[in-house]
Simulated scan of single mutants.
Amino acid sequence: MEPEEIYLLITRYLARQTSPDENEQLAAWVGHSPENERTFEQLKAVWQASQTPHEPAETAAALRQVKARLARPVAVLAGPPPVRRWRLRRPYQVAAWVVGVVVAVGGGHFLTNPTAAMEYRVSRTLARQKQQIHLLDGSVVTLAPQSQLRYPTTFGETSREVYLEGEAFFEVKKDARRPFRVHSGSWTTQVLGTAFNVSAVPGTTQMAVSLLEGKVEVFDKQDHYLLAPGQQLRADHATGRIYRQEFNAAQVVGWRTNRLVFQNERLADVAAQIERLYGVKLVFADAGTAEVRLWATFDNEQLPAVLEALQLAGSLECRREGQVIYLRQVAAKPAAE
């Protein structure tokens, strides 16, 4: 893939026009090297700045600048040797190229003063670990176990953008001039100031945004959804269904105090919570075991107590080998005559 092709793929991804296969292709390219990741972040910073609306006169002037930059010799964006580890020549050259794509893909916003790429920090948590992050705007993020938050060292003048993999609880400081956006999976959750939980754990079939206070708007590739306090937006990747529902706050944010609440939930759907909170791996003997329904509440219990309760609540047999828990459904004993 030529440099121009990867730049176009990135801008199409930012415009939410890529397919799942293209997203995987881009993720593989970004993860190939730190240099590729820096390239991606620079292009994304230019794209985000280009989404700021301008007056018609400013837009026309910006378009003239873009056309002038794109008229430079193609050698400006010439690819490197066959090793294909692409490198940005100069920020303004890449900015010009990306803004040209914005004209074609985004249709309407142009960048007059390309900004340098933002500096980001990344906070990661391990299993059984939680972390509280205080952002410079006064917002507080509580990061769940086995999760990652990427955020700029300084927010921009028009928005506050953070990137989540996993689960986190957000308490956002109100700022009417700068919306706060959480990018998680294929969703973007936008707020001004509120308290909400986002769960977008890689490898799971469920994704959810749960609103406790204020108001949020969730965007996906096709639509957007407004939530009121007490509402949850949930996506089931297996069926493609997206729906709103009421939720139990203790069930959704109980992880903050090591509390697990299961109300008629499939073992397959709650396994990730147990794994992240206790640092173990659950292995099901068969598909039937994964479908076992659980009714149970654990208030900061130790792992042995949780396993014992699972056996009673779900007619399960548990066998532990180190940090791996093997689960098997057992037939219910017939009632005594």
Score class of each variant (00 low, 15 high):
residue 317 E to F: 08
residue 325 I to Q: 04
residue 326 Y to F: 08
residue 326 Y to N: 00
residue 302 Q to F: 14
residue 297 T to P: 00
residue 305 A to C: 03
residue 291 E to R: 13
residue 294 L to F: 08
residue 310 L to C: 03
residue 315 S to L: 12
residue 295 W to K: 12
residue 325 I to F: 04
residue 325 I to A: 05
residue 308 E to W: 11
residue 318 C to K: 04
residue 294 L to I: 12
residue 318 C to M: 15
residue 298 F to S: 02
residue 293 R to D: 08
residue 321 E to D: 09
residue 328 R to D: 00
residue 297 T to F: 09
residue 324 V to E: 11
residue 314 G to H: 03
residue 307 L to R: 05
residue 291 E to A: 15
residue 293 R to Y: 13
residue 319 R to S: 06
residue 311 Q to G: 08
residue 293 R to Q: 11
residue 318 C to A: 15
residue 294 L to K: 05
residue 292 V to S: 12
residue 317 E to C: 01
residue 315 S to I: 07
residue 294 L to V: 05
residue 319 R to P: 01
residue 309 A to Y: 04
residue 302 Q to A: 15
residue 296 A to C: 02
residue 305 A to N: 14
residue 326 Y to W: 01
residue 300 N to E: 07
residue 328 R to M: 01
residue 314 G to S: 05
residue 328 R to W: 03
residue 310 L to N: 00
residue 299 D to I: 00
residue 296 A to L: 14
residue 317 E to W: 05
residue 321 E to L: 05
residue 292 V to Q: 12
residue 298 F to N: 04
residue 298 F to H: 11
residue 297 T to H: 06
residue 303 L to S: 02
residue 299 D to A: 00
residue 308 E to I: 01
residue 308 E to H: 12
residue 325 I to C: 09
residue 314 G to R: 07
residue 309 A to T: 11
residue 296 A to F: 06
residue 317 E to G: 06
residue 327 L to V: 04
residue 321 E to P: 01
residue 305 A to G: 04
residue 321 E to R: 13
residue 296 A to Y: 03
residue 326 Y to D: 02
residue 302 Q to R: 15
residue 327 L to R: 05
residue 322 G to C: 12
residue 307 L to S: 04
residue 325 I to H: 07
residue 322 G to V: 04
residue 309 A to W: 05
residue 316 L to V: 02
residue 317 E to L: 05
residue 298 F to E: 09
residue 314 G to E: 03
residue 308 E to F: 13
residue 310 L to T: 07
residue 311 Q to V: 08
residue 318 C to D: 08
residue 296 A to N: 01
residue 316 L to Y: 11
residue 305 A to S: 15
residue 292 V to L: 06
residue 311 Q to A: 12
residue 325 I to L: 06
residue 323 Q to D: 14
residue 319 R to V: 10
residue 321 E to F: 08
residue 299 D to V: 00
residue 323 Q to Y: 12
residue 297 T to I: 13
residue 302 Q to P: 11
residue 324 V to I: 10
residue 328 R to S: 07
residue 314 G to D: 03
residue 292 V to I: 11
residue 306 V to Q: 09
residue 311 Q to R: 04
residue 301 E to Y: 14
residue 303 L to N: 03
residue 316 L to N: 01
residue 310 L to S: 02
residue 293 R to S: 12
residue 325 I to R: 04
residue 299 D to T: 01
residue 293 R to N: 10
residue 295 W to H: 14
